[in-house]
Amino acid sequence: MRFRWPAAALALLLAAPAPAHEVLHEVQRGRAVAVRAYESDGEALAGAAYRVFSPADPGVPFLEGRTDRSGWLAFVPDAPGPWRVQVVGADGHGLDLVVDGTAPAATGTADSGPSGAAFVLRPLAGLLAVGAVFGALFAYHRRKGGAA
């Protein structure tokens, strides 16, 4: 009975390496760069393969994975400069863009997609561009007397 407490202390000491296997964590908000991939109609590229390349080693992916069901991916830049993000849909759709990782704490957003009225105006602008090309051609040929 005299040795019970020393034995218990010894057992605790022997168990001391256990915390070395513990995975710790750290939560920081505002450090990650989040990218959302979506089709022109707003449909998310969900579950699409993506790769992120660091400017420090552009030949080897810094991160690989699949977008979440909303089309998002996120990474935490550990080097300043242009980070390449490639999202590859199995159907050949996808994107290949460069994201500035210089100021990861910045909370600014960059959106290549339309929003609000622009969603309707973009196709109209494209129509105008196509119409302008053919209108100019037609007018040119009329002036030259090629059309009746």
Binding site: E43, V130, H141
Partner: peptide, 26 residues
């Protein structure tokens, strides 16, 4: 798109514009 095709340009242009529109509809 040349002078010899001037007569068909309105139809070609309209169908090109239509193709542009249908390609935006997912």
């Amino acid at each position: 798109f040349g002078r010899s095709a001037a007569e068909s340009l309105p139809v070609v242009g309209s169908l090109t514009a239509l193709a542009f529109v249908v390609q935006t509809i997912m």
